[in-house]
Amino acid sequence: MRRRLLRFALWCLAAALLLPLALVLLYRFVPPPATPLMLIRAAEGHGWSRDWVPLDRISPHLVRAVLASEDQRFCAHWGFDTVELRRAVEDWRDGGRLRGASTITQQTAKNLFLWPRSDVLRKALEVYPTLLIEALWPKRRVVEVYLNIVEFGPGLYGAEAASGALFGRGAAALTPVQASLLAAVLPNPLGRNAARPDAFLTARATRIRGVMSGVDTACI
């Protein structure tokens, strides 16, 4: 019985290691057909609108806006931003709330393989696919996949679907203002609307535009 249990545990471990590896290798070249979040939102009744486009058909303004908002050291780190992680821990020790410090690579790994709610288990499971993505994909592919699967609104996944639904244009034609508004909704895509921004969202988008010109995109 012990041998059977050990054999079963080894098979489970092998599957846990090899399946993400196989999928990361596949998604290096093939668009992911779905993500756990898409399935969850569809079950909740939010619909499912998505139109995969290559990065060349996504406005550079949106690339800069997302990096400015979510991951300003994207080109410098190896999947984990140790500078932001250290700042987050220091802020927490000083009495502030424990904020997230996820990179675009971590968010891509989470969206592709894990559930949306933030908890300790999910953050731990996020490490392995994040390292795989950083090791096996170029930075350009990370951004391309992220901008095609990220949730910009209820049932809206990826830049092309969100641009069409919210602004009536393709992702390639996004203006800096529209791009910054889309980036501004990412922490809470169900509670904010880039097409009808409130004062908070407008102010956040303005701050993002102030940072966009200084973001390093050389690796993309």
Rank of each mutant, 00 (worst) to 15 (best):
Pro129Lys: 01
Arg117Leu: 13
Pro116Lys: 12
Gly153Tyr: 10
Pro116Ala: 01
Arg141His: 12
Thr130Ile: 07
Leu132Cys: 05
Gly153Thr: 11
Val127His: 05
Tyr157Ser: 06
Ala159Asp: 03
Pro129Leu: 02
Pro116Arg: 11
Glu151Asn: 06
Tyr157Lys: 13
Leu147Lys: 03
Val120Gln: 07
Leu121Arg: 14
Thr130Tyr: 06
Phe152Leu: 11
Leu132Gly: 04
Glu160Asp: 00
Lys139Gly: 05
Ile133Ala: 00
Asp119Thr: 10
Leu136Gln: 04
Ile149Gln: 01
Leu132Thr: 15
Leu121Cys: 06
Pro116Asp: 02
Pro138Ala: 00
Asn148Leu: 01
Pro138Leu: 01
Tyr157Leu: 04
Val143Gln: 06
Pro138Asn: 10
Pro138Glu: 06
Ala135Asp: 07
Ser118Arg: 15
Ala159Ile: 11
Ile133Cys: 02
Arg140Ile: 14
Trp137Pro: 15
Leu125Ala: 07
Trp137Asp: 11
Leu132Phe: 07
Gly155Asn: 14
Pro129Trp: 07
Leu125Ser: 03
Arg117Glu: 12
Thr130Asn: 02
Val145Tyr: 13
Ile133Trp: 06
Ser118Thr: 09
Ala124Trp: 15
Ala159Thr: 09
Asn148Met: 02
Ala159Cys: 05
Gly158Tyr: 14
Tyr146Gly: 00
Thr130Pro: 08
Val142Lys: 03
Phe152Ile: 11
Ile149Thr: 10
Thr130Phe: 08
Arg141Leu: 09
Glu160His: 02
Thr130Arg: 01
Ala159His: 09
Glu160Asn: 01
Gly158Ala: 04
Ile149Pro: 14
Arg122Ser: 01
Val120Glu: 08
Tyr146Glu: 00
Ala124Ile: 13
Val145Pro: 14
Trp137Gln: 06
Gly155Ile: 15
Glu144Asn: 04
Gly155Asp: 12
Leu147Gln: 01
Ala124His: 03
Leu136Pro: 13
Val150Gln: 02
Ala124Pro: 13
Phe152Gln: 07
Leu136Asp: 07
Tyr146Ser: 00
Lys123Phe: 13
Trp137Val: 12
Thr130Asp: 03
Ser118Gly: 13
Pro138Gly: 08
Glu151Ser: 02
Arg117Tyr: 09
Pro129Phe: 06
Gly155Phe: 14
Arg122Cys: 02
Tyr146Cys: 00
Gly153Glu: 08
Glu160Pro: 10
Arg140Gly: 04
Arg122Gly: 02
Arg140Cys: 04
Glu144Ile: 08
Asn148Arg: 06
Glu126Cys: 10
Glu151Tyr: 06
Pro154Lys: 09
Ala124Phe: 12
Ala124Cys: 12
Glu144Phe: 02
Glu144Trp: 05
Arg117Trp: 15
Val142Leu: 02
Pro129Gln: 01
Arg140Asp: 13
Gly158Glu: 04
Val143Trp: 06
Gly153Lys: 09
Glu126Val: 07
Glu151Lys: 08
Leu147Pro: 13
Glu151Thr: 08
Tyr128Ile: 15
Gly155Tyr: 08
Ala124Arg: 07
Asn148Gln: 05
Arg140Met: 04
